[in-house]
Design a protein around this nucleic acid. Sequence first.
DNA 1: CGGCACCCACGACAGATGTCATGGTTCGCC
DNA 2: GGCGAACCATGACATCTGTCGTGGGTGCCG
Lengths: 201, 201
Amino acid sequence: MIRVLLADDQALVRGAMAAMLGLERDIEVVADVGTGEEVLPAARRTRPDVALLDVQMPGTDGLTVAAALRDALPTCRVVMCTTFGRPGYYTRAMAAGAAGFVVKDAPPEHLADAIRRVHSGLRVVDPVLAAQSRTSGPNPLTEREREVLQAASEGATVADIAAALHLSGGTVRNHLSAAISKTNATTRAEAVRIAERNGWL
Amino acid sequence: MIRVLLADDQALVRGAMAAMLGLERDIEVVADVGTGEEVLPAARRTRPDVALLDVQMPGTDGLTVAAALRDALPTCRVVMCTTFGRPGYYTRAMAAGAAGFVVKDAPPEHLADAIRRVHSGLRVVDPVLAAQSRTSGPNPLTEREREVLQAASEGATVADIAAALHLSGGTVRNHLSAAISKTNATTRAEAVRIAERNGWL
DNA sequence: CGGCACCCACGACAGATGTCATGGTTCGCC
DNA sequence: GGCGAACCATGACATCTGTCGTGGGTGCCG
């Protein structure tokens, strides 16, 4: 029996996935939570063999949780599950010690499959994403650039960002300019889109 | 036995929802499709009692499909299902003739419940969303403003939009200015965010 | 130590953006 | 017919944005 912990912020799909996995003879869902913060306590309590984590969650995101979980329960294998097949997510998930990566576009059978493989010590990779993550490369943005672009992505103006990060307006524009150039964009908005698509934010 | 058609672009969650609904004694999933275009043919073939449609789908979106389905199979009731509880989606879904509206945050039991209620002739509404849709009101943007803002949301500059819509740059700026003012925003980017949140795009 | 990368800042400039005033057209409605 | 709403357009203006050059500070590595 493979003990599975489920983490996804959308209760409906979480319940649905639990139902689907429950149909499998060798899989047992022992816990399901809706936020990143709940994962660790639930995992300590239920000792799952595999944790299925959504990347996007309110509060602590799945990637951070994956790393923490790896430290707290080294025997528990992690499968990341996400709506968006962004190359950056993939690489970051692997860096955070995930053993598998499944996009929500994949055929349903893939999920139970991935859980079994990961449980038996194998790694489950999405070949398309793996290729993309090689071509798109690692995050080219420096920490400051990422921070500034992130703020801009939420609709903040230069003045807003400058105030929030205690910088001068000129410096903010410099960082934005660098980010725009590194993403091969021509506008701030475009840079945001590209960075988001690659999971660089 | 309630015959249900499932439409959601993410195969994994579609399969999971099918599995969950399959556990219910009185519900039978007779078709499941991944795009808006496939809905009508599948519905004609399988004659479902209830269609569960995701709002966001590649190609034809769920709201359009709902209206078409209402014309083609008037006996088939429609439940809209979506990740984002945007007030505009709710009102548009109701206008398109949907009988129910479920957000993916809702507890899993709600889904089967909603299907049963809708099948028995009732309407299923999300009280929170209904309230929001009253306060946020109907789409204040004119068709042109919506069109221009939509283009801007995809990262296009004024010049790009002007070229795409065969307008002068000044006109585009005027429409954008009007949209910004109507959304109580101060920037184009902010206007986009607000409009998206309300489902006005 | 001398590079090198990153961070911060200032100034200046072209171009884009948001606002406003003004004027034209069409269409539906009282 | 008069009126208002939506559409398109122009020109002018203040402001914001993106770019570039320059300079100074830190820390790391060969």
